[in-house]
Design a protein around this nucleic acid. Structure first.
Lengths: 96, 96
DNA sequence: TAAAAATACTCCATAGGTATTTTAT
DNA sequence: ATAAAATACCTATGGAGTATTTTTA
């Protein structure tokens, strides 16, 4: 499972539009389709119902959304924390 | 960032051996090297110190390990939860 | 017929494998 | 000399793009 795909999924759940989601990431609509289909394949569940001019999360999709957000947030926190390490000299450590 | 790579990272942090980690996933040693290097590239940080017959987490690696474990656990929980949905009929729901 | 998603196809990047080299003891 | 990781190289898969078709309002 790829975290970029989770970000795409989250954005699609908000925008409810494949084309707009693609534009947000400077990719094309079919790539969004592929990423969502890949997630659906990995999970063995449909995440969205696509019909008559709107895109809606399934019940499974709603549940998965909460996890996806937590995973994406954790990745961001990890990157943030690592970027902070060793940023400031550790003045009070006198020896190894 | 790929969650499979995080699993590889976690296992390597436990086994401290690229070859054994590869065996655990039925992949080859060079693939483990590639996955770890991909993570290190994405993070811009070395995760392991490789020297004289042992592999040790760097300080950054130790911090990242905690996040990796949480992310992998969340993915597992998500899959578990989705697999449980609609498993049992909802007897007491009389109408939509 | 119009707007949006799915599909078909093509191409290229890269993930993963084999084999080899490097490194450290 | 040995054990293990890195590297070089090759191949095949699949991710991403273009163009087209399908769908539905």
């Amino acid at each position: 499972m790829n975290i970029e795909n989770l970000k795409t999924f989250i954005t699609l759940s908000e925008l409810k539009n494949f084309t707009q989601t693609a534009d947000r990431y400077f990719i094309v609509q079919s790539t969004v389709t592929n990423r969502i289909m890949e997630l659906e394949k990995e999970l063995g569940k449909k995440l969205f119902i696509r019909n008559r001019k709107n895109v809606e999360l399934t019940e499974e999709g709603q549940h998965f959304l909460a996890y996806a957000k937590r995973i994406v947030a954790l990745e961001a926190s990890a990157i943030e924390e690592l970027s902070m390490l060793h940023t400031f000299p550790r003045i009070f450590v006198s020896e190894q």
